[in-house]
């Protein structure tokens, strides 16, 4: 055998051994137990706190708002799509900071002119539709057709 190979073959064997050793040490515990992932992560994710409470949870206290909403075009919306995640608020109403989205752009996220959704949602041109006032000065956000003049 040529002397080069006498050196290289053991070196490659060592390299492969080190690779396998490293792999053995680095693969985390519970990996592959139930599939190609770390099974312990399931339990870890279960322990994470919830962010969203859901509309029914809001209705437990704000039943007036929930009822109001049901009677108008925003009936299909969830409270938290406008007010942001509310789990903390649900647990302790005094502590949780919720968003009060009173800017025109907020309504525009759904209602601004967008040619690809004309038939999906009522649209207004933000630059054109009563541009000097906030939307909620006229529209009640929970009852959008209750127009305050």
């Amino acid at each position: 055998m040529p002397p080069q190979l006498k050196t290289l073959i053991p070196l490659f064997a060592i390299f492969i051994f080190l690779f396998l050793l490293g792999r053995y040490l680095l693969v985390p515990e519970s990996f592959g137990e139930q599939g190609h992932y770390r099974f312990n992560s399931v339990a870890e994710n279960k322990d994470l706190s919830l962010q969203y409470a859901g509309r029914d949870a809001c209705a437990e206290c704000h039943d007036d708002k929930a009822l109001e909403m049901e009677s108008d075009m925003h009936a299909g919306l969830s409270c938290e799509i406008c007010h942001g995640p509310g789990m903390v608020h649900y647990d302790n109403p005094k502590a949780g900071q919720l968003i009060i989205p009173d800017q025109r752009e907020h309504c525009g996220l759904c209602h601004a002119t967008n040619l690809t959704r004309v038939d999906k949602i009522a649209q207004v041109d933000l630059a054109d539709h009563n541009p000097d006032q906030k939307c909620i000065e006229c529209h009640n956000p929970h009852l959008p057709w209750e127009i305050a003049e």
């Binding site: 040529p2 002397p3 080069q4 050196t7 290289l8």
Partner: peptide, 18 residues
Amino acid sequence: TLGVNDISPKTVKWDDKI
């Protein structure tokens, strides 16, 4: 060189072949 210091024509020939 990884300690392979042999430069006899035979070994160098192997370098070339491999």
